[in-house]
Structure formats: structure tokens, C-alpha cells
């Protein structure tokens, strides 16, 4: 599992790399870091939820409330930024 090894020292580079790999494996398409996954129809409704749970599991974060906005998930870049921000936050899991 690629995600496990990135947990301790996740950088933008490793997260981006891992996410691109996860997407390639799950949706069988190579995507670009800036590609809009939602408007291009690449993300099925099932996969939208898998993506959230995957990020939470792989990076030990809780994505809830206002962090679950569409804009946070549109591209690999925006998801990478979300993960980095939540990992850095003092209270990443909120009170969920």
C-alpha cells in the first residue's frame, strides 16, 4: 500500500504522487494534477466518497464540515493542498 509509507513524511510531492497512483488504479485513467476530476465526469458518485475515505485513512486526517467542499476535491492539486493543511492544523480532526 503506497499510502502507508507516505503517512509519516508526507510532502506535496509524495501526496501528489500517491494520489495520481490511487486514481490511476481506481478509475483506470491517467489524470493530470490540475485536471478537474468532477466536471470531466471521471469521478462516479461511489468514487467521490471513496476518495474522501481514502484520504482520511491514508493521511490520518478527518475531513468534515466546511473542508468537504467540492473545490477541495476538484483536482489532485487541491486535494494535496487539503491534506497538507489538515495535517498541519493543530486540531485536524475538529471534534468529529
Amino acid at each position: 500500500m503506497t499510502a502507508e509509507s507516505t503517512t509519516s513524511a508526507a510532502t506535496a510531492e509524495t501526496i501528489r504522487h500517491e494520489l495520481l497512483g490511487f486514481l490511476a488504479e481506481r478509475i483506470k485513467t491517467t489524470v493530470e494534477p490540475e485536471q478537474d476530476l468532477f466536471s470531466s465526469g471521471l469521478v462516479s458518485s461511489m468514487f467521490a466518497m471513496q476518495l474522501v475515505v481514502h484520504l482520511e485513512e491514508a493521511y490520518d486526517i478527518a475531513i468534515v464540515g466546511p473542508d468537504l467542499k467540492l473545490d477541495s476535491f476538484r483536482t489532485v492539486e487541491s486535494m494535496t493542498a487539503l491534506v497538507l493543511r489538515l495535517k498541519d492544523a493543530d486540531d485536524p480532526a475538529g471534534d468529529a
Binding site: F38, M46, F73
Partner: peptide, 18 residues
Amino acid sequence: VLGGGGQSLPMLFTTALS
């Protein structure tokens, strides 16, 4: 309005339906 809105529709309904 939960979280101020602006969510992905598929993510919203799949989460609720799951």
C-alpha cells in the same frame, strides 16, 4: 445549510445514501 454549502452533489448523496 450544512458546512455553508458548496459540496459535490455525488459526494453528498452517496455519503447520505451509504
